[in-house]
Design a binder for these strands. Structure first.
Lengths: 272, 272
DNA sequence: AAGTGGTCTAGACCACTTT
DNA sequence: AAGTGGTCTAGACCACTTC
């Protein structure tokens, strides 16, 4: 139920419009329960739009309804919808284009490619790397992975191992753990056949869109196997990047450990 | 001069207010020069407020004028000032507090401490480290440092070397290069005597406020001297963090090379 | 009670894209 | 010409803090 940015029991007392009503169901407990979950109207609208994005009512790359249409749908003013979409755009869930409309963000646009890959050459322009897949197998989740993916130890997961080659040079070794129930039918062949970024495949083929991630960075020595694959001496310093990726609603869906060779490339970060 | 979000020659044709006028001086070239520098009114207001922040009209931690006062001062509506301040708040230049007003952001508030120090323990809550200063000397800028600081090779710079101790354990070795003309009179003693974060000192004692920074991260082997200072074996992997910090107007004022021990701590980063 | 930022609405017009 | 998002204004009321 939608509630105004006013004490819930108070009559709206608006300037001229009708009271905004979502699914008007009389709550069994009239006062306290509503007050506890209060948030401004534009955030409630934002939550409703996010829910539609999550449920796939509008797919990545597609146009969502115009601000006026959404205002009519939710029975609020255009300005309120506008503020909701402003926040969604700031969080990169949607992209606004003047004169055209608002689109669901997608990992297929080049613009998004380097949001989740911060490794850039020390000199020269960023180039998107080539993937070489080493392995893709089903497994039962070890307890640590299960904890991070919000699963139970022993639940089905998929493990992918791959090399990233920048300008034909092996530079990153990734080990990727995916929630098995969300990525049924993922095989090394499908990965290898796909053109473009992995997150684009996840979004198009499995309906799982990566929204945000947290990374923990460390410097670690290369173990013998890794050193061999990356063509560096044993114990050479590597940048270790431990990532947990989330889809809508901050639900974790991927755990990833990357080992980066940073002699001619570096991880770039902006502090604001 | 302030211009509306309309073609500059066109009369404003506003709904009821007076035409917004800044310093109303007839431009010598009436048309073309204005059209080239066009930006929406709220961005012009934002630039004017930023200019006042830069010039110290309101100092870090202080209250800036209310939205209504600024609206009167710039002869625009409160909504336009509001949008300008919204962006300044999003960029962490100011902090809004309902019922109190809008404050100039400061490195003295604990909230800001970890925006520029991403090293956190693998387990347990972040604790602010203790500094031990090893050196603070005046020098002529090497060409590489001069380039990054927008100086000429040979211009005056100040070099600071220090250790950061987390829970009494030496964990970070920093080498810091500062624009010499901005930090006259900085000594190791003043640094050692100061309570709180270094950027707080810079802001209070030298009127230089750090706004944003870019960092380049790599894994590197510890050289003998560094290994000794950080208590790690020679060639142990260290996280190297090369930072350039900027004040208002994206003017670079600090270059910093940090070497982090990441065995019990890690560098944390959010991707969005 | 007064003042501040926060929310919500309404309406006008502009800039841009597509039809 | 029509439709979209972008800007700007005005006014009302709410939430919060201080006097």
């Amino acid at each position: 139920m939608l509630t105004m940015a006013t004490h819930p029991q108070t009559p709206p007392a608006m300037t001229g419009a009708e009271s905004p009503i979502g699914s008007l169901r009389a709550p069994s407990v009239p006062t306290a329960s509503v007050a506890a979950t209060f948030s401004p109207l534009y955030r409630q609208i934002k939550a409703l739009i996010t829910q539609s994005l999550d449920q796939g009512e509008w797919k990545p790359g597609e146009l969502i309804p115009s601000e006026m249409e959404l205002a009519l749908r939710y029975k609020v003013s255009q300005g309120t919808v506008r503020k909701a979409i402003d926040e969604l755009a700031a969080e990169n869930l949607v992209v606004r284009r003047q004169g055209r409309g608002t689109f669901v963000a997608t990992h297929h646009e080049p613009r998004a490619h380097f949001r989740f890959l911060r490794l850039v050459p020390d000199d020269g322009d960023p180039k998107y790397p080539e993937s070489r897949f080493l392995e893709c197998k089903r497994m039962r989740a070890p307890s640590e992975i299960a904890r991070l993916l919000d699963l139970k130890a022993g639940d089905a997961v998929i493990v992918v191992r791959r090399l990233l080659l920048f300008e034909s040079v092996a530079t990153v070794l990734d080990e990727i753990w995916l929630n098995g129930s969300l990525f049924k039918g993922l095989t090394a062949e499908r990965l290898a056949d796909y053109r473009g970024p992995m997150y684009g495949l996840f979004e198009t083929e499995f309906g799982v869109r990566m929204i945000e991630a947290t990374e923990k960075l460390r410097a670690v020595p290369a173990d013998p196997t890794t050193a061999e694959l990356l063509g560096v001496p044993e114990n050479a310093p590597l940048l270790s990047v431990d990532r947990v990726s989330f889809t809508y609603g901050s639900r974790p869906v991927e755990v990833r450990r990357g080992l980066y060779v940073t002699t001619r490339y570096h991880y770039e970060n902006e502090l604001g």
